[in-house]
Write a protein that binds this DNA or RNA. Structure first.
Lengths: 345, 345
DNA sequence: CTGAAAGCGCTAACAG
DNA sequence: CTGTTAGCGCTTTCAG
């Protein structure tokens, strides 16, 4: 069917091995012969078969990215950073959506190993069987985690400073006079979101704020909507809400609107991620910014480095900075004018 | 290094080929022997090498999706539909972002061919070299296009009824009294967006509306922002704007806000796609809904079918329905109250 | 610098 | 039902 290297070799009247050398560009080949082979290849419209090459070299020039859902704009941004880095190095990127489902994640990991991808970037699901995890480490397949990672997981990690982000949110809210606060935390056991919660709560505690309602749920638009509905009902007197990510915050805004609660007049909301559309919601969302594209790019470059090095490397851990972006979703309770206005309204 | 089928065969004291049959689950194997092989495989923690298998079977169980940018929420939705369909069939999905750059798209297509992916789903870039295109068709590699496609391209296509969507937008605006209209069309030569423009303009013409300003640019947030700025300056008297997609519309809203133009009071805006966050902007965006997830899923299933069938099939063309979703970004100029209000304002 | 030969790990006729 | 024998298309020693 397709023309093979053998055809090219015959056409150029050289041995298969010489054709191989010429085509893959290794040094020791006579310039004339090489040109002859290349010409023959062009004439026959030759396309090297990477599968065959992969079988002998043991490298596929392919990496995989396992995330929960590409529809979350945060991950879209990460994926783009990852793909750009992969593309720059002539690698391809396999995209996997796990929905945080351990079974689905496991399926991906196994399938990817069988396909001999050169490396994997993923959010470790806490519930990934420790035995499988150990097997993965032992297999020597380069893996970069997009979360802080269990201290000893043995993998490299790249993630934003979630704890600090959580603290920033707490500080911001408390500085503006909020004392009865809600927190939409997302799924239990999620490492990144969990750190945000941890940082948020500890900063709150340090500031003597004890009245905080934490609720868990899915870290999606509808999850945010549902958590907000529930919390708004069980604790109607809260004045501010910290959402573990922007998409949750969007769901929260929607829930507030439907409940006739004005944002930020009656309820202040802080998100996390600083997704592009955070600037476009009504009101625009104040949120913790993290470098999403860089996260994907950095993780991929780290992975690519490990692959190139070949040998088992000592894990490296990168922590990327965060900052608060102030927009219009929070009210300052300490500003007299605003306070008076609200009391009278 | 990794344990191979040969190891398993030795461990189970059978021939390599028998081990192969047992592992790949072909019928003619004694139940006892099969169990013995499977046990050995488990004991040795055997992982079949799909690369090797791929070399002999000629199938990689991998398909690719080439889009312009995964950060466009429309494509994130499409990609998820595609990945779910692939996952359901035990295929993997390689994600490629072309930015509509012909060189980058070409690079992907060649690289994917060399990697022997089983099929490709993509937005054909008009400027993809016709010769390359022909070569692709001739190669017999299954391809599904996410756009109407040049009549004769020889590929299957799956896309929304863009023309009808454009007509819907025109009708809606005209019915509400708009006569001086702008259109942010996106990049020249883009097939999907081009059809929207075509449908929009022809419906406008049929209704006797001649005063329409069309402007081209990138089909991104910043592209929308820039096109809107330019158009708002050159034709400040327009009362409505049809944006070729939602992301453009978001940029348009931002431009209007910055120019002190109120939406929808002074400027009505209609988008296209009905991206999830269209409901959350201020004001919420009225837009043409298209089934994004289904698009990706349907395209993938079509592709998978072609792959399974093996032989070259006659191209199939699927056109998915659209509908207008009315939200808050358009004003009805024919409503007396509103009109009076605006005149006095 | 080039050719000969071996083999990557697996499947697929073909005999027995 | 199982073993024998060829490869899939390519890289990579090893000689010459």
């Amino acid at each position: 069917m397709a023309t093979t290297l053998k055809d090219v070799a015959e056409e150029a009247r050289v041995d298969l091995s010489t054709a191989s050398r010429a085509v893959s560009g290794v040094p020791g080949v006579n310039a004339k012969t090489r040109e002859r082979v290349l010409a023959a290849a062009r004439r026959l419209n030759y396309r090297p078969n990477r599968v065959a090459r992969g079988l002998v070299t043991g490298r596929t020039h392919t990496v995989a990215l396992i995330i929960s859902d590409i529809r979350n704009p945060f991950f879209a941004e990460v994926a783009r950073g990852a793909e750009d880095a992969a593309y720059a190095a002539s690698f391809d990127l396999i995209l996997c959506n796990s929905d945080l489902n351990p079974a689905r994640q496991l399926h991906y990991v196994e399938s990817l190993c069988e396909k001999r991808v050169d490396g994997i970037i993923m959010n470790s699901v806490a519930s990934l069987d420790p035995e499988v995890n150990a097997g993965l480490v032992e297999s020597g397949l380069p893996v970069v985690l997009l979360n802080p990672g269990a201290s000893d997981s043995g993998f490299s990690t790249v993630c934003a400073d979630n704890t600090r982000g959580g603290r920033l949110a707490a500080q911001y809210l408390v500085d503006r006079g909020h004392r009865r606060i809600g927190h939409l935390a997302g799924p239990r056991g999620h490492m990144n979101l969990g750190q945000r919660t941890k940082g948020f709560l500890s900063a709150l505690r340090e500031r003597g704020v004890a009245d905080v309602n934490v609720i868990h749920g899915e870290h999606s638009f509808s999850g945010g909507y549902e958590m907000a509905k529930a919390l708004l009902k069980s604790a109607p007197d809260i004045t501010a809400m910290f959402c573990a990510n922007d998409v949750i915050a969007f769901g929260c805004i929607r829930a507030a609107i439907e409940s006739g609660i004005e944002v930020p007049e009656e309820l202040s909301i802080v998100g996390f991620d600083d997704v592009q559309l955070a600037a476009l919601t009504s009101p625009p969302l104040s949120t913790i910014h993290q470098p999403k594209y860089d996260l994907g790019q950095s993780a991929t470059n780290l992975l690519l480095g490990a692959i190139a090095r070949g040998a088992r490397n000592t894990p490296e851990h990168r922590l990327l900075g965060v900052r608060l972006v102030e927009r219009g979703s929070c009210r300052d309770l300490l500003t007299i004018g605003a306070a008076a206005l609200s009391k009278s309204g």
